Amino acid sequence: MERVAIVTGGSRGIGRAVAERLAADGQAVVIGYAGNEVAAKTAVAAVEAAGGRAVAVRADVAEEGAVAALFDAAEQRYGGVDVVVNAAGVMVLGPVAQLDLDDLDRMWRTNVRGAFVVAREAARRVREGGAIINFSTSVTRLSLPTYAAYAAGKGAVEVLGPILAKELRGRRVTVNSVAPGPTATDLFFDGKDQATVERIAGMSPLERLGTPDDIAKVVSLLAARDSWVNGQTVFVNGGAA
């Protein structure tokens, strides 16, 4: 039976790389996106050009009705849901003393509430033998200045995973988090000058930024049927932390 994956935040960056990789693995992919319809259609076209199957569905991950509709679309089009990758995220940087609380609320609405809403729906609907994969960040270990609010929210996501894994005992559904290090995406480059980018890239012994494909490879492993990895946070950062 063909496996079916939902990838939120799947229209760009790491999410798109994950969608393409899971499609290459033979899964039908439902790409959830927040608002950029052009990017979502481009991602679907890339999957289809490579011989895969995909559809894009707009959904705000923090809205339970929208998330339920996203899962409904996957079930109606492909017959069920086996893998859920919650890659949707918002990042606003700033020192604790200066961070605008509206920015904090906006980040946490997507990164914490959104992760919980998606995980809750996945816990209800993912078929036996499936996988739920959330996204954290290696900054929870690196402790970089200006990342406090973002990393704190991702820390909440890390705690969610092992608890949900235990709650799903008996269904052979794994729940893990992936914690990327600095990765070459638009989200990472936003607001950084070249010197900052080079300094951060040099933190890894491999002396480079990660790529979305580096992260997608790990997600592919965690999404495999009957994986033995469960309740874990997997740090993918080239040895920076």
Results as ranks from 00 to 15, higher is better:
residue 1 M to Y: 05
residue 2 E to S: 13
residue 11 S to T: 08
residue 13 G to H: 14
residue 14 I to K: 13
residue 14 I to A: 13
residue 18 V to G: 06
residue 20 E to L: 14
residue 24 A to Q: 11
residue 24 A to Y: 12
residue 25 D to Q: 15
residue 29 V to T: 05
residue 29 V to E: 03
residue 30 V to P: 01
residue 31 I to T: 15
residue 38 V to K: 11
residue 40 A to S: 08
residue 46 A to D: 14
residue 46 A to V: 13
residue 48 E to H: 06
residue 50 A to N: 10
residue 53 R to F: 00
residue 54 A to Y: 06
residue 55 V to A: 15
residue 56 A to I: 05
residue 56 A to T: 05
residue 59 A to D: 06
residue 63 E to H: 14
residue 64 E to V: 13
residue 74 A to C: 04
residue 80 G to E: 03
residue 81 V to Q: 04
residue 81 V to I: 09
residue 88 A to S: 05
residue 92 V to M: 12
residue 95 P to A: 06
residue 98 Q to Y: 12
residue 99 L to F: 15
residue 100 D to E: 10
residue 103 D to W: 09
residue 107 M to V: 13
residue 108 W to Q: 04
residue 110 T to L: 01
residue 110 T to E: 07
residue 111 N to E: 02
residue 112 V to E: 03
residue 117 V to W: 11
residue 119 A to G: 13
residue 120 R to C: 03
residue 125 R to G: 09
residue 127 R to W: 00
residue 128 E to N: 10
residue 132 I to S: 01
residue 135 F to I: 03
residue 136 S to C: 06
residue 137 T to W: 06
residue 142 L to P: 05
residue 154 K to M: 01
residue 162 P to C: 04
residue 164 L to D: 03
residue 166 K to L: 13
residue 166 K to S: 08
residue 166 K to D: 12
residue 172 R to M: 06
residue 172 R to D: 15
residue 173 V to Q: 05
residue 173 V to A: 03
residue 175 V to N: 07
residue 177 S to E: 15
residue 178 V to S: 05
residue 184 A to T: 07
residue 184 A to G: 08
residue 186 D to N: 08
residue 191 G to S: 11
residue 196 T to F: 03
residue 196 T to E: 07
residue 206 L to S: 10
residue 212 P to K: 11
residue 213 D to A: 15
residue 215 I to G: 02
residue 218 V to F: 10
residue 222 L to W: 02
residue 224 A to C: 00
residue 225 R to M: 00
residue 226 D to T: 00
residue 227 S to T: 15
residue 228 W to I: 07
residue 228 W to D: 08
residue 231 G to H: 12
residue 232 Q to D: 12
residue 235 F to D: 04
residue 235 F to N: 02
residue 235 F to H: 10
